[in-house]
């Protein structure tokens, strides 16, 4: 435990000082890692802890991104105020999807497909409705002042992403040491046994998905403020859903640090392969080299390390 605390303190110190010493490019990469770890934690809560695999987490991400953006552009809200509203919207969407699917008794791959269907439906709606500016997407007027949740120096987005990541780790940590988390894991492991032991399985799943919805939606607003532009594909596209699932599965579903480890691994691979592709002529034509490496990595994880990278860090004696 003390060794872990020491490592964490070290990592935290490194994360704090990185932007002060590293080139701007690395600051952006770091921001991406923490941001991915944050939205990955959303998937981890419902998919990793509660065991409800989703293929459509982008529905929450996009709901957040669009809610805060619409509130700003159409209703003139301040972005900071729109942020909690976006989270609320994400929680509500999570609640609705959960109530509809779990009332109908959907489980496993059926539930996963329903979430995918919701994300696609939202994408198509955003693509065709006028209040989302349809396929044009929404452009947030650049006015880089902290009061507007816009920063001239990307360093501040880096620190904000770091803070979000830390908050998400704290939430996951609380889950591993409290009643809610215990119940979510029980639901994941065995619904009948959970029920027999007094757990309202339906209610716990609804809680998990609402919480996950709020977190992913917070990530959506962050994204919109960082890039000042969203469109239906960015917000609700399958890519985002897969990204959230992937970082968690690779890093370790149902563990505190899984999404962060997965985000580090995947972002790292992404950067390395991108550099390789631009430097080594032989790789020039293998365009999405990172996708191939993702695929191989996923196969290795599923086959060799089903509990993800986090397993490498767990003390072995616990299992003996």
């Amino acid at each position: 435990m003390t060794r872990l605390a020491f490592l964490l303190a070290l990592a935290f110190a490194a994360a704090i000082t990185l932007p002060l010493v590293a080139p701007g490019y690395l600051v952006d990469v770091g921001m991406l890692v923490f941001f991915l770890a944050f939205i990955g934690q959303s998937w981890n809560i419902s998919g990793g802890f509660a065991g409800q695999t989703s293929f459509g987490h982008a529905v929450f991400f996009g709901t957040g991104a669009y809610t805060s953006t619409i509130l700003q552009i159409t209703f003139g809200w301040n972005a900071w105020l729109a942020w909690p509203a976006a989270m609320l919207a994400g929680a509500i969407v999570g609640w609705i999807i959960a109530v509809l699917s779990f009332r109908a008794g959907l489980r496993g791959s059926y539930f996963a497909l329903i979430t995918l269907a919701f994300a696609e439906a939202f994408r198509i709606l955003a693509n065709s409705l006028s209040f989302t500016h349809a396929g044009l997407g929404m452009l947030i007027k650049a006015d880089p002042r902290p009061a507007n949740f816009q920063f001239k120096d990307p360093i501040w987005f880096y620190y904000l992403a770091l803070a979000l990541c830390i908050v998400s780790l704290l939430i996951a940590w609380q889950l591993t040491r409290g009643r809610l988390g215990s119940r979510l894991v029980a639901v994941r492991e065995n619904e009948d046994a959970a029920r027999a032991l007094g757990i309202d399985v339906f209610a716990e799943k609804v809680k998990a998905l609402s919480l996950a919805g709020a977190i992913a939606a917070a990530g959506g607003t962050f994204y919109a403020q960082k890039y000042l532009y969203i469109d239906p594909n960015i917000a609700f596209g399958v890519d985002k859903s897969i990204e959230m699932l992937l970082v968690t599965m690779v890093g370790g579903a149902g563990t505190i640090f899984g999404p962060l480890l997965g985000a580090l691994a995947l972002t790292g691979i992404n950067e390395v392969t991108r550099t390789l592709a631009s430097v080594v002529p032989a790789f020039k034509n293998v365009q999405p080299l990172s996708l191939i490496v993702y695929g191989v990595m996923l196969m290795l994880i599923v086959g060799r390390l089903p509990d993800g990278l986090a397993r490498l860090f767990r003390r072995v004696d616990r299992h003996a």
């Binding site: 046994a193 029920r195 027999a196 007094g198």
Partner: peptide, 21 residues
């Protein structure tokens, strides 16, 4: 539902054991 009955004070075990693995 089972969880309410459990809360009321009656709880069952499973013949085919269902551990949280």
């Amino acid at each position: 539902p089972p969880h309410r009955i459990c809360a009321a004070g009656m709880v069952r075990t499973f013949q085919i054991t269902q551990p949280f693995a």
